Simulated assay, not measured.
Amino acid sequence: MMRSRVDRTLTVVIYAVSLFLFAMAWATIDATYAVPSGIRPAIAALAALPLLAIRPNPLLGWAISATAALILPLTCSPIDSAFPWQMVHVVVLLALLVAVTVRCPRAAAAVAWLSTGAVLLVNSPTETGVGFAVGMTVVVLVGLLMRELFGSRRQLATQREISGLERARRAVLEERAQIARDLHDVIAHHMSVVVVQAQSAPYRLTSVTEETKAEFDAIGANVRASLNEIRAVLGVLRSDDESAELRPQPGIARIRELIENSRRAGVDVSFNTFGEPPAVPELGGVVLYRIVQESLANAVRHSPGAPVTVTMEHGSDATMVTVRNAPAAVPGPGGTPAGGSGIAGMRERAAAIGGTVDARRLPEGGFEVHAIIPATISTTPEPHP
C-alpha cells in the first residue's frame, strides 16, 4: 500500500515537471532557434516530454531525446552555433542518461554515454561542446556510483531476508527436534516395552495356551506396526530434508491390511467393498486410511467386544466409507468418541481436501462414522475473520 502510494506520487511529480519544462521550452524557444511559431510546440515537446519515460522506459526516452538533440540543430536555425540546444533539452537529456546508467544494463549505459558525447561534439565542436561532453562524462560516473550503491543495498536487503528465513527455519527444526525427543521418550519407549513384554510372555508365564500365545503375538505385531509408524514420523520431525515429508503414506491399498491387523488383535471386523477404486490422489488415500484407522480405534476403545462393519463404496467421483460398531459386548470405558480429538481430526482431514465426515451415535447404542472423500481434491480456504 505504501509503495503504491509512493509510485503514484512520483508519477504525478514527473508529469508535473515535464509539463512545466514543456511550457518553459515553448516560451524560451526564440532564444535558441529562429523557427516559425507553428512548429514551436513540436520542438518544445521533443525537448521536454521524453522525461515522461524516465521511469517506465528510460532507454526509450533517452533515445528520443538524443535523436532530437542530433536533428534539431541540423534542421532548425540555431541562433548560437556554439550551443545549439535549449537548456531544458540538455537537462532532460542528462537526466535520462543518468536513469539509463543506473537502471539499464551496463552495455546500454556505455552506448548511451558514447552516443551522447558524439551528439554534443558533432553539433558543437567548439570548447563549449567539449566542456559539455566532459560534464556529461562526470554525470555518467555519478550514475555508476549510484548504481553500485543501490545494488549493494539491494544485495544487503536480500541477504538480510535470507538470514531471517534461515533463522526461522532453524527455529522450526529445533522445535521439531524437541517434539521428536519428547514423543520418543513418552511414547516410543513405552511401546517398545509393550512389544518386549508381549514377545517374552509365553516364555515367562507358565500354562500359556496356544490361543493365548497367538493373542500375545497379535499384540506384539500391532504394537510393532504402530511403533514403525511413530518412528517414521519422528524421522520426519528430526530431518531437515524436505523430501522426507514427501515419502509415500498409507493409502487405500493398505486398508485391507489394517483390517487384518485388527482381526488378529481379536476385533470382530467385517469388511465390504463395492466398485473399483478411482484414481484418488495420494492425499485422498491417506485421509481414507486415517479415517478407518481412527474409527476402528474408537470402536475398540469405547465399545470393546462389539462387532465392527467397514463398508467402502467407490464411485466415479468420490469414495464413501462407513464404519459402524454395535454396543459394547463387555464392560469398557464407554463414553462418546466425539469427546476426544479423533473425530475432530477426521473432519479436519476430510475438509482440507473437500470431503465430509459425519459421526453419530446410533439409536440402538452403537456408533457410526460416515465419510465422503472426493476423487478430485479441492482445498477449502479458511474463513477470514
Score class of each variant (00 low, 15 high):
214 A>W: 14
218 A>Y: 13
218 A>E: 06
218 A>K: 10
219 I>H: 12
221 A>H: 06
223 V>P: 05
223 V>A: 10
225 A>C: 04
225 A>N: 12
225 A>G: 09
225 A>H: 08
226 S>T: 11
227 L>D: 07
227 L>N: 08
227 L>R: 12
228 N>Q: 02
231 R>L: 15
231 R>E: 15
232 A>P: 09
233 V>K: 13
233 V>R: 13
234 L>Q: 07
235 G>I: 08
235 G>Y: 10
236 V>W: 06
236 V>L: 12
238 R>W: 09
240 D>A: 13
240 D>V: 11
240 D>H: 13
241 D>A: 03
241 D>I: 04
242 E>C: 00
242 E>R: 02
243 S>C: 04
244 A>P: 01
244 A>C: 03
245 E>D: 07
245 E>Y: 06
245 E>W: 07
246 L>A: 14
248 P>R: 06
249 Q>C: 11
249 Q>Y: 14
249 Q>D: 12
250 P>E: 11
251 G>N: 06
252 I>M: 14
252 I>E: 11
252 I>L: 12
252 I>F: 10
252 I>Q: 11
252 I>S: 02
252 I>P: 09
254 R>T: 07
256 R>K: 12
256 R>Y: 05
260 E>M: 01
260 E>C: 03
261 N>M: 06
262 S>W: 09
262 S>K: 07
262 S>N: 15
264 R>M: 11
266 G>P: 15
267 V>M: 09
267 V>E: 11
268 D>S: 10
270 S>W: 04
275 G>V: 08
275 G>E: 10
275 G>C: 06
277 P>W: 01
277 P>C: 01
279 A>T: 01
283 L>S: 11
283 L>T: 12
284 G>I: 01
285 G>I: 08
291 I>Q: 02
292 V>D: 08
293 Q>T: 00
294 E>T: 14
296 L>N: 08
297 A>R: 11
297 A>I: 04
299 A>E: 02
301 R>A: 10
304 P>C: 08
304 P>E: 03
305 G>E: 05
305 G>S: 07
308 V>I: 10
310 V>I: 06
312 M>F: 05
312 M>Y: 01
313 E>G: 09
314 H>V: 10
315 G>N: 12
319 T>N: 03
322 T>V: 01
322 T>W: 01
323 V>N: 05
